[in-house]
Structures are given as C-alpha cells and as structure tokens.
Design a protein around this nucleic acid. Sequence first.
DNA 1: AATACTCTCAACCGCCGGTAG
DNA 2: GCTACCGGCGGTTGAGAGTAT
Length: 530
Amino acid sequence: MTNESDNEMISKDCTGSPLMDEGNCDGSASGGVVLKKGPWTSAEDTILVDYVRKHGEGNWNAVQKHSGLFRCGKSCRLRWANHLRPNLKKGAITSEEERLIIELHATMGNKWARMAAHLPGRTDNEIKNYWNTRIKRRQRAGLPLYPPEVCLQALQENEQNLNSSGDRGQHDLLQANSYEIPDVIFDSLKTNQGVLPYVPELPDISASSILLKGLGSSQYYGFVPPAVHRQKRLRESATSYSGYDGSARNEPPPFDHIPDDSCDNITTQSFASKPATPVAVKLELPSLQYPETDFSSWGSSSPPALLESVDAFIQSPPPSGTDCLSPRNSGLLDALLHEAKALSAKNHVSDKTSNSSTTTHTPGDVTHGSSLDTSKTKWEEYGESISPLGNSAASIFSEHTPVSVSENSLDEYPPAETFPGSNMMLEAAEQKVWTLDGEKNETATQLDFSRPDALLDSCWLGQSVTYANDQEGVTTDAAAEAATALGDDDSRNNDYKPHMGTGTALNQGWGFGSCAWNNMPSVCQMSELP
DNA sequence: AATACTCTCAACCGCCGGTAG
DNA sequence: GCTACCGGCGGTTGAGAGTAT
C-alpha cells in the first residue's frame, strides 16, 4: 500500500475535512502546513521509523514538527502501530489465532485493542478487519457467529458463576444492564414457545433466542436467513441452501452425517413445531447486526447440511458468523447473554437460587453445572474489564437453552459426546492449557481457572486436537498436538490449517473450522481424544 | 475478454477518556 | 472547574486484487 503516489496526495487528500480531529489532525496543523492523507509511501515510512528510533513512541504530533512528515500525529501513530513497529506479525491469521480471536470476541465483543493484546504481533485493526470479513462471510453462508463450544463455554462459566455467587448477578445486571440489544424477534420462536418450554415467555425474545440458536438448537432451522439478505451471488452458500429452505419447507436440512437419533428427533420435532409459513425474522437490524442465519450449522442436532457452506466457511474459519451471538454484530456474546439474563431475571426476580434459575424454563432440561460448580472464576475480575457482562456472560445460556453441559438431556439435546464442547473438551483441555496472553506456546498441565477464558481455551484445544486426529488419522498426544499447534506459525498452519482444500467435502468440512464450529457430534464420533 | 462481485486491508473519521495548564 | 491537547479505540470507507460468471 505504500506506493509511490507520493506527494501529489498531499494536496489532493488533505483538503478533506477542515477538522480531521481535535488532536490537530486537521489539514492546517502546525502553521498552515497541509497534512497529507492517504496511503503512506516508503519514504514516509522511513522517516517515521527513523523518528521513532530516535525519539521513541509517543508524542506523535511532534513527529510532524520534527521529522518533516506531513502527517498528523494520529496518522503517524496508526502507521507505526499497524505497520512499522517491530515484532509485528505479518501474514495470515493462523488457526490458533483464529480460535483465540473467536474466543476473545465471545467474551470481549468488539474490543479489538484488548483482543490484540492477547495476540502478540497482531494489531487491533488487523483483528478487526479479520473479524469483520469473517462475519460477512458467515453471514452470507448463514452460519452462526460463534461455535457452539464457545456458547457452551459461556454456559459453563455461567454455571460456575451461578453456583458460586448465586444469581445475585442477575439483579446487578438488571440494574446495570446498559446493553441495549436490538430486538431480534423470532416470530417462530414465539410460536414455538409452547413446544419449547425453555423459551422464555417474554414479549420479545432477543438475546435468549439467539442464544438458543447459537447453541445449535435445531428449533432454529426455521430461522434460516430469509433470502432477503442473500446476495445474488452466494458462491459459498448457494449450494448449501439449495436443497434446504427450512423456513419455507418446515423441514430440516438434509444431513446424513449425523446418525445421532436424538439429534434427528430434535430436528424433526423442532421443525414439526414450526409454522408452515416462512419465519418472519425481523430484519431491521442495527448496522452491525446481521440477520439471523442458519444456526443449524452449529447445532449438534443441526444438520451439517451446510457442508458446503460450511466448507466455504471453513476455508476461512474464524467464525464471524452471527449467531450464538449478538444481534449486534459486535458479536457480543456476553451482551446477549446479559440481556437474556436480564429478561430472564424479570421473570424470576424472586428466584434466588441459581439452580432454579437454570432449570426453570425447561422441564426437560437438565441442570448443568454441578460438575462445573467449581470455584468462582475470575469472570468478575477479568471479565468485568473485558466483558460487558462481567460475570454473567454465560448465565443466560443455562437459563434459556436446552443444552445441558455436565448432564445431557436426551430429549432435548444430543448426548455428551455430541458436544465435545463440554465434557470432552474439558478433558482435553485439562491436558494442556493454552493461555490467551501467553505468547503462543504455553502449555500447562491444568486448566488455568484463574482465567475466565480457560474454558474457552480448553474447548478449542480439544477441538483442534480432535480435528488433527481425525484428519491425519494419527493418534496424537493431546499435549504434543497442542504444543505443535502452538509452536511456530508454520507448523500451526500445517496442523490446523482450516484451508485445507484437500479432499472431500467432508474432509474439508471438518477442517478446524467445521470441526470446531460445526457439528460436534460428528467430530466426536470421528475421533477420540487421547 | 469483459463484467460483476467479493475479499482484503490500509487508512480515515469521530468519539472518548486522561491529563496538563 | 474549565479547556485544549493527546492518544486510543471502534466503526467505516475506499482502493486494489482476486474470482466467478
């Protein structure tokens, strides 16, 4: 980008806004000098680098004054931070980084700078761009934002929090709920309330509904994004949807890969309960809010129907979808959870027991958590700073979803093995821990519960291991695998590269992306953790 | 080959919080 | 306390490259 368009830009671009920024980034900063805008040239880079070497970072506005650069301080800072500073990691986002980004986004939302802090060498801008492009991709493909495991992780976290602190948080949340999550009303969901006991009988199901979807509940098949937002060209998803229009046909997408009866049952049941008419999904979403899409791709019970779309998705794995998530594209899982929780709390104000809160909505639901009822995590500490929700992130899941983590509700959900994101993942995770802030290669022998993301990490690790085993047909030691995966970038890419482009659709489908984000059931069945 | 479309990414914009005067 | 400056952050935009039709 640093081409040689050079100085003509100075005159051309600087006339933009009279006041670019209160930070003297205006075109006439420093004595009427017209500041340049647009792409940086190599010459400018050199000047900036030299300046920083001599004077260090900071005081960016002085750069222009002392170096002769006709750039505002902001521009200099940005250029330095995103392109010139040492230790920047160039190249594509690795699989590990992808996972991390997903996990972090699930907890932080669009806090790119914070996320970048966990990804050495990566910039907030890079992460942001990456995420946004993924979101678009997933949106097109009708795939959910977050993999179910992430949702489950949140759920688990919630359990921990609930069990450790009761639902005191609910009240706090209610009071502090500043997360105004746009309502995404799923008419069909409402319609199904009678069928889906866990669906809160609330006037507006927004976050909670999304959560449900995010957890792969088949009941959302009907929410396949209306063709409305489908673009003419659905390279990636066209085929996937070709044979499936759940919203219109009331039938689940074809998915023969999942032998799990329970899943099928759920699917069928869910669909049967759906209105015959296309689901009316409120499409008036915030700018960053993406239309609801096909959650089926996530759900354990969901037909991987979208193998192809999944495939496409996988080729650029990092989920950016829209689902499990936040209606506001910020993908703020926590935010949704927060809202859902708040909503739930409204209905259970008097319900002070955490356990009750987790089971109230679902007769057939199982109280998860006891096994996860470990010591209170640091959500409140860590999460507070990073998550809009603080500690309540996953709570909603437990309250509004049929998913059972530590236990399984066969009626409502697939058995444990279909949800590697839960137990299995944890097991794997216990063998190795991947610390977020840890510069990649950190492994440990125990989950680091001091970190709120511990579970998330474990989840992903488990997935990756699973995938590796499956793909390679090699029984690898989880720890070793993790170590390898966390090793250098190259090795990571080799081991987990979602962009496999190798073989069958199934094979492709189970790339890191699909393995981790799409139907766990199959994944689990396909391989076992050491 | 032309066109349309998507993807990627660098850069900009505006807002906000912290801080010094 | 007020104001201006500075730096940081998140959202958005636009150009170029790539790809499909």
